[in-house]
């Protein structure tokens, strides 16, 4: 009984209106995914786990369920966060990154290849990673090109090291296999699907 009580104390509400709010969050993410580099804001008030950004909580509530194993980076996997996600999403929280359909990370991973990139025949099995960072800016030094972008667009993610972009570019050679990224900061998100080409302008940062 003791544990039940403490769980109840830790548990905060999910969406107040699941039908319209999950649609809203999905549409924001769809806009972000269809127009890489455009910054979308989740305009909702959710009291999620302390370790998760609002956008990360919202995306997870909107898209993750029993069909999609979720990986939580160790720093984020507090008992409160695990209980919250298990209860509201009905998902399995797993520790082996390779099996995850979705992952929530604090900062970029050192090795992207620990995640599932799908197969040549079923590339959609590649993971979607929600990466929490401090700052999302529109003014470079990253230049993005690819589907969803008219000519090119600028993006600034100062918390992401240059080595990460090198690793991602290497991974892109295996297209259609790949990993789709959603960078979140507070209520903001910006998506970089596997097709987006990222170049780091030299001379800046």
């Amino acid at each position: 009984m003791m544990s039940t009580n403490s769980t109840a104390q830790m548990l905060t509400p999910g969406f107040s209106d699941p039908v319209s709010q999950s649609q809203l969050v999905f549409r924001r993410l769809l806009d972000a995914m269809a127009r890489p580099g455009s910054i979308e804001t989740v305009d909702l008030d959710i009291e999620g786990p302390e370790t998760l950004d609002l956008a990360a909580t919202a995306i997870t509530l909107a898209l993750v369920d029993f069909e999609t194993p979720l990986y939580l980076a160790p720093a984020l996997a507090t008992p409160a966060a695990e209980t919250y996600l298990k209860f509201h999403c009905g998902t399995r929280i797993i520790t082996d990154a390779k099996d995850a359909a979705f992952g929530i990370l604090d900062g970029t991973p050192e090795d992207l290849s620990t995640f599932n990139t799908g197969t040549e025949e079923y590339p959609e099995l590649g993971a979607t990673l929600i990466i929490q960072i401090e700052t999302i800016r529109t003014n470079g030094p990253l230049t993005l090109t690819g589907p969803g972008i008219k000519d090119s667009t600028e993006l600034g993610l100062p918390d992401v090291p240059a080595s990460f972009w090198d690793a991602r570019t290497k991974l892109q050679r295996y297209f259609p296999r790949g990993i789709d990224l959603v960078f979140v900061s507070g209520a903001e998100m910006v998506a970089l699907p596997r097709t987006t080409n990222v170049t780091l302008q030299s001379g800046k940062e």
Binding site: S22, G126, P176, G178
Partner: peptide, 16 residues
């Protein structure tokens, strides 16, 4: 949710 996940992957892999 299932359809939305499929749509997002479809957008990420154009034409697949």
């Amino acid at each position: 949710r299932m359809i939305r996940r499929a749509i997002l992957k479809g957008v990420a892999i154009p034409g697949y």
